[in-house]
Nucleic acid binder design. Structure first.
Lengths: 194, 194
DNA sequence: TATAATAAACAACTACTGTTGCATATTAAA
DNA sequence: TTTAATATGCAACAGTAGTTGTTTATTATA
């Protein structure tokens, strides 16, 4: 059994049930206390499964968080069918909005300053941004190689979105995305006659 | 006693000694096994101090790593007297080189894929890049507010340097820094007639 | 030098981690 | 329906994480 489970194909119903129980328990606990304060014991007590069973699915609570975040962010992307799209300024702006809103929501889940929480969110979200950008850039001409441009842009998007999400007096995500769009685009270094 | 100790002022010699022992033990252990594999017990055994004493100085091993990284990166910056400088393209390039070389060195310290290690390094290093850039931007005119420009540029610098440092067949840091300099500068959105 | 402050050592404690071997229950497939 | 595979439950294990109260040793200061 894989530790970070791949997209659910034909899954043993027991596995499906157990993972759902873990996920639900985890979400409930996240809502009531910070990620740091949650132990694997807490999760398995809440889910009413055996602790050893948890370790059969995830190496530790950090892997569970990574998995949850990845799932949630993929869902946010797919809800707006962004993953299947090509590059356009509008799509890029939509991507920024999604990241902003996702991080704002994530900030509500964890008490301030939960270092590991933030780091794991970042890793998972930024990687997916980068993958999407690389996919887009395959179809568009840039001054740079696509890998470098996608890397630069993904870090900028994530970084700015995170700063925005922590700002208490922030403008709407749409407005902010519009504001920083030129900055983000400058990292893609697109050729004008593309 | 503060958990993340401030720059050493007049410090009780016992405190100084203990922290030095912890640091040294930590570095020795990092050299021989990955960060994940190191326990607080390991550190205190190696340093020949009591385990409770460790907790009097650092909340956990992650805080110790943060402290070590911060110290090391600050030293790398100061060695080239960058922190006292103003903005110039040459200084910006030098900063990129420093980050690249620092990350290349850090990658040697930890076995591949040590998730928490990388995250903590990133947090500490990127914050310091951002602080320095904000300091520079106070003296220079930009299209954006300094905070936003510094945020964007700091994420790009860190992100690109990290990708570069993981590339097995990488060009010299100087060359790479020169290549990506325009990209980095585009995030600062400097006014030409500054 | 005498004294007050405090760092470090020590020991004990609760709780959690990650793992293992085995029994039981569920599932899929012949 | 029978059978083989496997997920889960269960119990126990050694090891670690943090914390606490007390004692001892070191330091700074009057």
């Amino acid at each position: 059994m894989s530790a970070i489970p791949p997209p659910q194909e034909k899954l043993d119903p027991r596995v499906k049930r157990t993972r759902a129980l873990i996920q639900q328990a985890f979400n409930e606990l996240l809502a009531e206390k910070g990620f740091n304060a949650i132990s694997v014991q807490d999760i398995t007590r809440q889910a009413e499964i055996n602790r050893a069973t948890f370790y059969a699915h995830f190496p530790d609570k950090y892997a569970l968080l990574e998995y949850s975040i990845r799932q949630a962010f993929m869902q946010a992307l797919e809800k707006r069918t962004l993953s299947a799209c090509h590059y356009s300024p509008d799509n890029l702006k939509a991507l920024v909005v999604i990241v902003c809103e996702f991080l704002a929501q994530a900030n509500n889940l964890c008490k301030a300053g939960e270092n590991h929480f933030e780091s794991l969110v970042e890793n998972q979200v930024r990687k997916q941004i980068q993958e999407l950008l690389e996919f887009w850039l395959e179809q568009v001409r840039s001054e740079l190689d696509p890998k470098t441009a996608a890397t630069a842009a993904s870090w900028v998007i994530y970084g700015l979105a995170q700063e925005w999400s922590r700002n208490k007096h922030r403008s709407p995500a749409e407005v902010y995305a519009q504001d920083i769009l030129p900055l983000v685009q400058s990292n893609l270094q697109l050729k004008e006659d593309g």
